[in-house]
Design a binder for these strands. Structure first.
Lengths: 191, 191
DNA sequence: ATTTCGAACCGGTCCGTCTCGGTTCGTTTT
DNA sequence: AAAACGAACCGAGACGGACCGGTTCGAAAT
């Protein structure tokens, strides 16, 4: 008793790719504020309706473009010790953030998440919380191995890590580099 | 050789107050996205030009409204010990954040700071860095007293504190309450 | 047959600038 | 002292431009 599905024209993968790469290019040229659906449509050679049909907002287009462009796989490394695991996790997570354009997009998406509640929910559950949980798994494993003292509250380590990273990105604008990895590892894996 | 002072009508303090309180009221009713210069002008009974003459953007109006409404004095308490000082600093800093409307405005301003570069510079230097420096003074005093081990990098403590706070506000949306104060104090004043 | 596609076209909102007549000052002249 | 003057302000609103979100169209693909 499945629904009667009448076949129709399939979604154009070509248009999808064109839209995503046009969005990624444009945001690097004109910034997030200067980015518009109309601009994406014009650059990609598609129509506005094609974009509105598949994405709720320009922020969602950018989020998918970010996920498509770079590999957003979240690693949970097992190097044998907590400091090594943490270092490997951070190094893999920062691979993206080396490019200023990616940081620019991340800042814009975090900003949009504050202004647009619906996108905020998608951004939190689909992006932020995934990373938080991945780091949580890593920490929990170290804890059962006895590499780490018990947590005052579940998720404290992850909140400290991502808090410091996002504060750098959003507020102080210091670069995301190897020195930050060293600092985080020494702060959280020493005591 | 002082500046040549041209006579003219003085700035209306009445209009300034009306604009600030109208902005504060409106942002609580329609949210930051729904807030507009035209709306502020209409609600305050002033003209758009009067607003554009004195503030570069609606975010600047809100920032001044926030500073005017609540006392934004940044305390540097001296309770005799580092944990007590830190606790007093956090308690005073969080006094504002108890109201959800204030949090809403802070989130919007941080978002705007990411999108509007000129306002971002003002927000960082005039708001964020002031708090960072205040906490830095407090930490440095504790360090010279020997209450705290030397810092791997200047400002590490402040970055951890404000990173965790802002990450809560922007990402996890957990409340800013006394439990957070306890957590921060035990995390940073114990080791 | 059904759905997607590119394209064109609205109605509406807000921005940022500008203009207008009128008001409040400090300065200058009488 | 009193009046005239000019500068910067005031509220109100018109204006062009940009963009949004949605609709409709014929053509194309399956």
């Amino acid at each position: 008793m499945g629904p009667v599905i009448r076949p129709g024209r399939k979604r154009s993968e070509e248009s999808r790719q064109a839209i995503l790469s046009a969005a990624a290019d444009l945001v690097g040229e004109v910034g997030y504020a200067g980015l518009s659906i109309e601009g994406i449509a014009a650059r990609s050679g598609t129509g506005k309706q094609t974009i509105y049909r598949w994405w709720p907002s320009k922020a969602d287009v950018l989020l998918e473009a970010l996920a498509a462009k770079a590999d957003l796989h979240i690693p949970i490394p097992d190097e044998g010790s907590y400091p090594a695991d943490l270092r490997a996790f951070l190094a893999a997570s920062f691979a993206l953030g080396r490019k200023p354009q990616v940081i620019e997009v991340l800042r814009a998406l975090m900003a949009e998440a504050q202004i647009n509640p619906a996108f905020g929910e998608r951004f939190r559950t689909g992006f932020l919380e995934r990373r938080r949980e991945a780091l949580g798994v890593l920490v929990e494993r170290a804890r059962t191995r006895g590499d780490l003292p018990p947590d005052p509250r579940p998720g404290t380590v992850a909140d400290l890590v991502f808090g410091l990273i996002w504060y750098r990105v959003l507020a102080t604008r210091e670069p995301i580099d190897d020195a930050l990895i060293d600092e985080l590892v020494s702060l959280l894996a020493a005591g």
